[in-house]
Design a binder for these strands. Structure first.
Lengths: 116, 116
DNA sequence: TTAATATATGAGCAGTTGCTCAGATATTAG
DNA sequence: CTAATATCTGAGCAACTGCTCATATATTAA
């Protein structure tokens, strides 16, 4: 047990207690962090923002982003596993689209923030 | 130049063009990704959520989170550099608080999402 | 001043991430 | 069937991240 966690250094027990009571369950915290991670990379963010306008295939996204199709495909797999995007097959082409309106909402709130 | 970016594979030029027109400036994309990164780690997320309820000192946060004060201090430095938190000194104790209402708003939207 | 408390900071390290490259799979055309 | 197109996938690697540990700084009390 680390010495810097001994009880004598808990200065405000009431505040710690209040934080504990208001805390989200660990499982939800982890899900939230995972969710935010999807938006925490420029490439994924551009993908999500592009798909927010209209569906696109891997090829289009690669051209738009200026990265390899393999890189796009890897990121799309992540986003698929998080159920943030889904695809629709038309012959050999897979068209990707967003699955949830919260996605654009989240970007809008964040934009409000960074624009002050 | 990678072979998988040759022009012949841009299937839908109109869609790529539309994505380009609707795209956010690169600087804004990077800022957004950086902003979301703050929320993309369970420890930081717990800190932000705790501070959303009331101000707390490093010591309290360490006790609440069950991690070392050093770890908390490092994360608080990041959040300070991003201007998401600020502190108020009272003697030797630094009380940290959130600087922006967008923070709790963002968490609420994300919660809506993960709870379906 | 010295000692104690509260926090900050730099170095270092294990784990994670985002890419590239090579190859696999899926669909369609011939 | 084979060839071509579109996408997926695993391995591997450099860069980044979040922690620990030791040490430094800041404030207060004696």
């Amino acid at each position: 047990m680390p010495s810097d966690r001994c009880q004598c250094r808990i200065v405000h027990e009431q505040q710690v207690e209040k934080a504990r009571n208001g805390a989200l369950p660990p499982a939800e915290i982890d899900k939230l962090a995972q969710f935010f991670k999807a938006f925490a990379d420029p490439t994924r963010l551009k993908i999500l923002q592009a798909l927010n306008q209209e569906e696109m295939c891997v090829c289009d996204l690669a051209a738009f982003l200026g990265v390899s199709e393999s890189a796009v495909s890897h990121q799309l797999r992540l986003l698929r596993q998080m159920a943030l995007v889904a695809n629709r097959r038309e012959g050999p082409v897979l068209y990707y689209h967003l699955t949830d309106a919260h996605i654009s909402q989240l970007v809008l709130v964040a934009l409000d923030h960074i624009r002050e």
